[in-house]
């Protein structure tokens, strides 16, 4: 696997984490855990954004993906 596809895989996992956190935050009854899940979700979505940029950047560097 190239670095590009590895980073893409990681990006997909991060998306998965974000979605799961969202589900947990919605299901949680307790205010504290709800808040913790929401905060974590915010951090993860920042990570997701930044990784997204990196994926685009790497795609440009690896021209075989542009075909």
């Amino acid at each position: 696997m190239t670095v590009g596809s590895e980073v893409k895989g990681c990006y997909a996992s991060v998306k998965n984490i974000e979605a799961t956190l969202q589900i947990l935050a919605n299901k949680a009854q307790d205010v504290d855990s709800q808040q913790a899940f929401n905060e974590a979700q915010q951090i993860i979505s920042e990570v997701k954004e930044s990784l997204n940029q990196q994926v685009i950047h790497l795609t440009r560097e690896e021209p075989q993906y542009n075909k």
């Binding site: 913790a36 974590a40 993860i44 990570v47 950047h57």
Partner: peptide, 29 residues
Amino acid sequence: LATENPQSKTLYQTNSKKLQAAIDKIEKY
């Protein structure tokens, strides 16, 4: 660790730290 591009390196490092912070926040739950 793998990348040689300093810009990418810092990006990965900050994101890794952020993830660690998120883990610390919710691990007990």
